[in-house]
Nucleic acid binder design. Sequence first.
DNA 1: TTTACTGCAAATATTTTGCAATATC
DNA 2: GATATTGCAAAATATTTGCAGTAAA
Lengths: 157, 157
Amino acid sequence: MDKENKVREIVKQKFTEYLSAKKCRKTPERYAILDIFYTDQRHFDMDSLYEVLNERNFRVSRATLYNTMQLLLDCNLVLKHQFGKNLSFYERAYNNDLHHHLICTVCNKIQESKDAELRLLIQNKKIKQFTPTHYCLYIYGVCNICARKLKKENRKK
Amino acid sequence: MDKENKVREIVKQKFTEYLSAKKCRKTPERYAILDIFYTDQRHFDMDSLYEVLNERNFRVSRATLYNTMQLLLDCNLVLKHQFGKNLSFYERAYNNDLHHHLICTVCNKIQESKDAELRLLIQNKKIKQFTPTHYCLYIYGVCNICARKLKKENRKK
DNA sequence: TTTACTGCAAATATTTTGCAATATC
DNA sequence: GATATTGCAAAATATTTGCAGTAAA
C-alpha cells in the first residue's frame, strides 16, 4: 500500500472514531466527502467540491456538504481558509505538511509556501492564557508575474 | 495636538494623496468612514460600522460603505480579516502596531497578541518570487476561560 | 423500530450592481 | 457643466434552516 492510500485509511479511521465519539452516523456521504480531500486536489471551494462529487456520480446535496464540512473541521481533518474574497476554501489538514499561503493582491492567485523553520518558530511560541491548536499565516503581496506586468506598464507611461 | 489626533491627520492626508493619485473624488462620506477607524474602536464588521455612523448622524448607504472599504483596503489604511465565520472584520492599519489574532474556537472571541519578536521574524523572511506588503497570522485554539469551563464539565462526567 | 441524516426548497445573510439624483471638480 | 459618487432597491452569492422521506443503528 503506498503512502497516499495509507493516509486515506488513517483519516478514515480517525473520522470513524470521531463520529462514534459524537454518536453521529457513519453515512457514505460523509466518507465520500472526506475521501475527496485525501485523493484529489488539496484546495476546494464549495462549488468545485460539489462538482467533483457529481463527476464521480456521487450526488450530495449542498446541505450535506456544509453539514459534513463542519464535522471535518471539528475533528481537524480539514482546514478552512478565507483569503479576503467572500469564498471559503477548504483543504486537507492531516499529514498535509502545514504551510503558509502567499496571496497576490493583483491576480488573487494563491501559492503555498513551505517554511519549516518559520513554522516551528510559530508553533513553539508560548502564548499566555491560550492553548493553540493550529494557525494560519497569510502573506499578502504581489507575485513575480504581476510585478513584471506592472513594471512593463509603468515603463510605457 | 495629542498623538491620536496627529495620526488622524496623517491618515487623512494619506487618503487624500491616494484619492488624488487615483483621480477619485474627495467626498465627506469617504473621510467620515476613514475617521471612524482612527477615532473609535479598532474592529468593525459592516453592520456595526453602519450603526456607528448612523449614531453620529452621518448616514451612509451600504453601497458607499463597501465602495469606500475597497478604497481604504487598496491604500493600506485598513485591513480586512475573516476568522472562519462568514463575516468580515475591518481594522485600522496605519500606526496600529501590527498584531496577531488569537481566535477561540469554542466561544469565537478574538484576542490581539502583540509579539514584536515574532512579527519581525515573519516580516524579515525572504520569500522567493514574491513581494510581500503585509501579513495576517491567525492562531486558533481555546482561550483560558473556555478551557476552564471544559475542565469543569469533564469533571462532572 | 427509532431517529439522525439526506435532499429539496425556501429563508437568511452578506455583498454587488443598475440607475436616477446629487455633489465634486 | 461633465461625470464620479451617492442612496436606494433589486440582484447575486454564499450559507443556513425547516421539513418530509430515507437509511443507519
